[in-house]
Structures are given as C-alpha cells and as structure tokens.
Amino acid sequence: MDETGKELVLALYDYQEKSPREVTMKKGDILTLLNSTNKDSWKVEVKITVNGKTYERQGFVPAAYVKKL
C-alpha cells in the first residue's frame, strides 16, 4: 500500500496499450490498483513524467501482467 492506503501492483512485463481504455507500463513499474474485480484486466493508475511534470492516467492492464504488493 502507498502512503494514502491504496493498494499497489508491480508490473511483471512490459505492456503497450491497445486501446484508449488501457495504459502502457514497463516491467518494474509500480502502479496504484483501483479495481481488481475482473479476473482478466485490472484498472490501475499510472504516473507519467513529461518534461519534469507528473501526470496521472487511469486505464486497464492484463491482470496476469501485474502482481499485488
């Protein structure tokens, strides 16, 4: 869990989004878990840094590609 009590997951593999509802992640990324009720895909939040500014983006990733921490 992070400092706000949200559950975290670790990306086990790289994943490139295939639709606007998904998010891209790299192996080793730590993501905030938002919903894990679907056995196939979990909703997560990723933090992306562009030019020194951090943005948050929500979307789905394959459940088999992440592990709860």
Rank of each mutant, 00 (worst) to 15 (best):
L33E: 00
M1Q: 12
E3W: 13
K47L: 12
T49L: 10
G59R: 00
Y13L: 10
S36E: 12
A64S: 13
V46F: 08
E3A: 14
Y15V: 00
S41G: 05
S19V: 05
D2I: 14
V23C: 06
R21D: 15
K53F: 13
V44E: 00
K53R: 12
L33P: 00
S36F: 05
K53S: 10
D2C: 15
G59N: 00
E7L: 11
K18F: 04
N51G: 11
E17F: 06
V9G: 09
L69Y: 07
Y15R: 01
V46M: 10
Q58I: 13
L34M: 06
E22R: 03
P20T: 09
L31Q: 01
N35Q: 09
K26V: 07
G59K: 00
Q16P: 04
N38E: 09
K53H: 13
R57N: 04
E45W: 05
S19K: 05
E56R: 15
V9D: 00
T24C: 06
W42S: 00
Y13P: 01
I48L: 09
V9T: 00
K67E: 14
K18N: 09
E7K: 09
Y13A: 11
K53C: 12
M1I: 12
K6T: 12
V9W: 04
L12E: 02
M1K: 13
L8K: 11
Q58L: 05
S36L: 04
G59D: 01
A11L: 05
K43A: 08
K67H: 10
E22W: 05
G59Q: 01
V61I: 08
A63E: 03
L69I: 14
V61C: 04
A11H: 03
K43S: 06
K47I: 13
I30C: 08
E7V: 14
V9N: 00
Q16C: 12
G5L: 12
M1C: 15
N35I: 07
K6P: 13
V23T: 03
S19T: 11
P62Q: 04
Q58N: 06
Y65I: 09
W42K: 00
K47E: 07
I48G: 05
S36W: 08
E56W: 15
T24P: 07
Y65G: 07
D29T: 06
L33I: 03
K47P: 05
Q16W: 11
T32F: 09
R21T: 13
G5E: 13
A63W: 02
G52R: 02
Q58V: 12
D29Y: 05
T24D: 03
A64G: 10
L8R: 11
L12W: 04
A64R: 13
W42C: 04
T24Y: 03
K27S: 05
L10P: 00
Y13I: 10
A11N: 02
E17V: 05
L34P: 00
N51Q: 09
F60A: 01
V50P: 00
T24S: 15
L34F: 02
I48M: 10
V50K: 09
G59F: 08
K47R: 13
K67Y: 08
M25G: 01
D40I: 11
L69V: 10
D2R: 13
K39N: 10
N38P: 03
V9I: 07
I48V: 13
K68W: 07
L12F: 03
N51D: 13
